[in-house]
Amino acid sequence: MLVYALTAGVLFGLFYSLVGLGLNLVFGVLRMVNLAHGQFVMLGGFAAYLAYVRLGWHPLVTMVVAAALFLGIGYLLYPLFAPRLAASTDPEMISLVFFFGVAEMIQALAVIGFGNNQRSIYAPVFGAAPVRLLGERFPAAWVVSGGVSLLALLAVYLYLYRSRLGYATRAVMASREEALVSGLSVGRISALAFGIGLALAAAGGVLSPFLLGGVNPGVGVGLTMTAFAVVVLGSLGNPLGTVLGGLIYGVSLMLMQSYLSEWTNLLPYLLLLVVLLVRPSGLLGRGVRHA
């Protein structure tokens, strides 16, 4: 049971890392908490469902298309809201309230468009036979989701640490002011980061129906909280930390489900509170701004 819980924890952890990474990238570059992140993940889930049921698309195809689409949407939306928010008296709080409004709108539109029901996708789309890992049997959908998440994480890593744009993105994360002074086009880099953040949300969202048992318009809030817990665990603004945070979260989740299942619901919230109160800079952190 322990090996099973640990392995499943890593598979789920990779998925949560992917969900958290988008939130963290947006925070790191824009200095804004995208409170609607979970709602974008939820939209990814509905995209997977609708594309499969209506068009017969394989979820991995939907994933690529949805990620590209959200990347473009994020890139184009950024200039419409961000400069205004950044110019306000308290950008951190004002942007939080802004994204809170966006989250409520997305959730309302999802109910109007898709109805309030839980939707799930026929899981054997990823293969009917369970996959054996370390002597335990896991649903193929979990293994594929974990693997795809890992690939997506690698892609983000290569972008951030091996490309010129990624290098500039990290410069903006390190210090927005100095990046501006040194002539980087901070606006364009930020727009791209916001787009990538949404694309990662959509990619994670496409996988979410398989790992969470389905998708409904109400899952957004919980996903945002979980993503925030994962990000804070690893430390805000540190992309590698998020992967660690996701893995810790996934493993603790599976251990809780195996040994203390009645209290599983509490996990993300308790984890978040404990980390914020005991080690607010996160496990790899250099600094959370204290009041």
Binding site: L96, P268, Y269, L272, L273, A291
Partner: peptide, 15 residues
């Protein structure tokens, strides 16, 4: 929780 700054506090209170 009041030691935390704005956004962290808002989310921590929700948690």
């Amino acid at each position: 929780l009041l030691r935390l700054s704005g956004a962290y506090f808002a989310i921590a209170s929700l948690a």
